[in-house]
Write a protein that binds this DNA or RNA. Structure first.
Length: 787
DNA sequence: TATTCGCAAGTTTTT
DNA sequence: CTTGCGAATA
């Protein structure tokens, strides 16, 4: 290796602490970076890669594996600045495996054009497999079988090896269904998410030469969030670090929250045993949170027994005490949070993007969403409803899947009668039967529809027509994914089908499809190294919830605690910290699960930079009815004497709930139907020193020269010139002179024909605009004069 | 075969 | 309160 001049190294090492430098400068041999929350882990990892390259390590020998695309993108972006145009492979575990598998598909019985089934596709296939095995579900659900198969795969247990625990009814069913399921996947030339790992692990295990070659190819391997790896992932990583054990992993056992997905905390705890000569670096200094927040989090996590103890510290200021509030109902909780956020924005202290709200389960996004709308606050939910999961989008993608991989039965079943082609259940059953008999795919069976005796002429003809349509479609040489999508839309009759419906819903669907076309075009333009239909479909299958989240729009962000990992926000709210919610009731039967819930809470708390607000309620709406709740045991583990506690937590409090809340918020203004932004008088002070807003009406300048958000918004409407259509993003908060505040639900079209449909606070349904001619503009709140 | 209606069931977290 | 699934109709 050639040594570079020292001043370049200085640049990379500048500003790093001793511990960080130790990690960065360690190149050869195993390395374990134990990184507490907010300890600058990503910085260390990217600087280390840059350092390695500078020291002469060939960039193509380095691969960095993450769990989400977002994390990978972040790493790639930062690396780009440190080591421009380096060819380090960064991506998710699943994408990494997908790439390897495409190159060596034949070794595991697949073709290189295999399809990746998402959860929905997989569960459809599983239902077919359950039919094959003629298993009667009785009291079990297919979902439980699915998760049993998934966990078997994560442990690298194949159908042949699967042995159910004796006396376990689910296990017995799995033993019968699993082989059929796997056979069908192979027959369809498809894999599920777990297969990506399973096949890769077995590939490496069974092909010594290949393993050796890949070990060398990925000589320097890095794995992020190592505490969340499962056995399959662990096997893959180990297999690639035998001859070249230059494996660097980062992680934090206290942030292990994916045990339910097969992740084993042992992988990180045993790392030092697996690699005896490992270098261990601890990053314990926190650069993110205030002392108050860190102390609370630290005290909570100290209650975990299965834990390497570790001290977190920070030189950050003390900050405000962590707040804990008990509300009467979930509605009150959501409204109070919205009010507090609106208040801080109205007084110019913060912008919407400074706030995040976390919850244990997705169901909570509804009530919070409602409260945000009521307050006129721009917000963004991290993928409650997946874009690629929408029916119309999945339909179009299914056509693409079938073009790419004609054996994909799930894709065929999805679209053979969508739009309606007079091919019904009876016909499908006969096709199924025929296909199974001949051992072929459904498309092949459909091709032979004329030969199927049980099928009458009429039905056979309709099927034949479908096959002809399909052949025409797949015969066209499309030179871009975008073009292919457009052809699908035209040639399958899908567009016409939606257009003649002339309903609001159908129109919405067309807009979503337009959005998909935009996606396809962006994909075409980005021209990734291995561009093509395969790659596009892979991309759509392997998106995580968090991947869709963008920092640009100035919105309050809401997401699950799981999705929050790796992020940070100035102000964090965590809601519903109640018994059976956090810890979740389903986590109470197993011993270690409650500790995992505690870690989850810990992760949430440590996302906060300046303010942390925790809350629980006394009664919670559940499946229509309302239920009494008990506070979470975790609340008893916090240092409550140094926190600001409001309302009754459990039975021991002497604070009167209602009085306290009256002091906190201007409930009169709040009860008003007007969004709080538009109320002339800003809400009452929260009692914090810096929020000294009064009830004074001030169009331009508020008290102390602070312009309120309402002022800014007025300015935005009246003073700004029209803006370019491509400044708009999905989910962006916008303002319209007549309709007021809203956010973009979908975008479609391009150039002068780019349209956006917007959901306004004031309107019951969405409104669509042509962006080139609309007075719509992105909202800018917060005080731009400061900073 | 397509559509509509009614009932039942179910909700943790996700690549 | 939603979503999905099945049966009854047109």
């Amino acid at each position: 290796m050639t040594l570079q001049p020292d001043n370049n190294q200085d640049k990379i090492l500048a500003g790093l602490t001793d511990a960080q430098q130790q990690a960065v400068t360690h190149i050869d041999g195993p390395l374990l970076i134990l990184a507490g929350p907010g300890s600058g882990k990503t910085r260390v990892v990217t600087h280390r890669i840059a350092y390695m390259i500078q020291r002469g390590v060939p960039d193509y020998q380095i691969a960095a594996l993450t769990f989400t695309n977002k994390a990978a993108d972040e790493m790639r972006g930062r690396l780009q600045r440190l080591a421009p145009s380096s060819r380090v492979w960064t991506g998710t575990f699943h994408r990494f495996c997908s790439r390897l598998l495409r190159q060596h598909a034949s070794l595991v019985g697949l073709h290189e054009n295999f399809s990746i089934y998402d959860t929905d596709d997989s569960s459809r296939l599983l239902k077919e497999a359950i039919r094959d095995a003629s298993v009667d579900l009785v009291r079990e659900t297919s979902g439980r079988i699915a998760s049993a198969i998934s966990s078997a795969k994560n442990k690298l247990v194949t159908p042949e090896d699967y042995k159910p625990a004796p006396g376990n009814p689910v296990g017995a069913m799995v033993a019968r269904v699993y082989p059929h399921y796997q056979k069908r996947l192979l027959l369809a030339n498809a894999v599920d998410f777990d297969d990506l790992l399973l096949h890769t692990a077995l590939l490496l295990r069974n092909n010594a030469e290949l393993r050796r070659g890949l070990d060398q190819r990925f000589c320097y391997l890095m794995v992020d969030e190592y505490q969340d790896t499962n056995f399959a992932q662990y096997t893959i990583v180990r297999a690639l670090s035998i001859n070249y054990p230059n494996l660097a992993v980062t992680g934090d056992p206290d942030q292990s929250i994916y045990g339910w997905r097969g992740a084993s905390i042992r992988n990180i705890l045993d790392f030092e045993k697996d690699f005896p000569r490992v270098r261990v670096v601890r990053l314990e200094r926190n650069y993110r949170s205030t002392k108050c927040i860190l102390r609370a989090a630290d005290q909570l996590i100290a209650n975990n027994v299965q834990r390497k103890s570790k001290r977190l510290y920070t030189d950050n200021p003390e900050g405000q005490p962590v707040r804990l509030t008990a509300y009467r109902t979930g509605r009150a909780e959501a409204d109070a949070i919205a009010a507090r956020i609106a208040n801080q924005i109205a007084t110019g202290q913060r912008r919407p993007k400074d706030f995040a709200i976390f919850y244990r389960t997705n169901a909570f996004s509804r009530s919070l969403e409602f409260a945000m709308r009521h307050a006129g606050l721009p917000y963004q939910i991290v993928r409650g409803l997946e874009f690629y999961q929408r029916k119309e989008v999945k339909d179009i993608l299914a056509y693409l899947h079938l073009v790419n991989n004609p054996s994909s039965d799930v894709a065929l079943l999805r679209i053979i009668n969508t739009p309606p082609r007079r091919i019904g259940k009876a016909t499908l059953d006969r096709l199924r039967h025929h296909a199974r008999h001949q051992g072929t795919s459904l498309l092949e069976a459909a091709r032979q529809s004329g030969l199927i005796e049980s099928l009458n002429k009429r039905s056979a003809l309709f099927v034949a027509k479908f096959v002809t349509m399909y052949d025409t479609l797949s015969a066209t040489v499309a030179d871009s994914v975008e073009e292919l999508v457009r052809r699908v839309l035209d040639q399958t009759g899908y567009r016409d089908w939606l257009q003649v419906q002339e309903t609001e819903e159908a129109e919405q669907r067309l807009e979503n499809i337009e959005e998909l076309i935009t996606d396809a075009r962006e994909f075409d333009e980005s021209l990734p190294e291995d561009g093509g239909l395969d790659a596009f479909l892979e991309q759509t299958a392997l998106v995580a919830d968090i991947d869709g989240w963008a920092t640009e729009p100035d919105c309050v962000t809401m997401m699950t605690l799981h999705a929050a990992k790796g992020l940070e926000f100035p102000v964090v709210f965590i809601v519903a910290i109640e018994d059976n919610m956090l810890p979740h009731e389903r986590s109470k039967d197993e011993a270690g699960k409650v500790e995992e819930e505690r870690r989850l809470f810990f992760v949430g708390m440590t996302r906060a930079e300046q303010e942390l607000h925790l809350s629980c309620v006394h009664e919670r709406g559940f499946r229509g009815e309302s239920r009494m709740t008990a506070p979470s045991q975790f609340l008893m583990e916090l240092p409550r004497d140094e926190m600001e506690v409001t309302g009754q937590i459990g039975y021991g409090s002497d604070v009167d709930l209602d009085d306290e809340l009256e002091d906190d918020f201007d409930w009169k203004a709040w009860e008003d139907d007007e969004p709080i932004f538009q109320v002339d008088a800003p809400p009452q002070s929260t009692g914090l020193p810096e929020s000294s807003a009064t009830g004074e009406t001030s169009p331009k300048v508020g008290l102390g020269g602070v312009r309120t958000a309402a002022d800014m918004m007025r300015d935005d409407v009246e003073e700004q010139p029209p803006c370019s259509p491509d400044t708009f993003r999905r989910g962006m908060a916008v303002l319209h002179p007549d309709y007021g505040l809203g956010h973009i639900v979908t975008l479609g079209g391009s150039g002068k024909r780019r349209v956006a449909s917007v959901r306004f606070v004031s309107q019951p349904s969405t409104v669509t605009f042509n962006l080139a001619h609309s007075p719509l503009r992105p909202i800018k709140t917060g005080n731009t004069n400061q900073e």
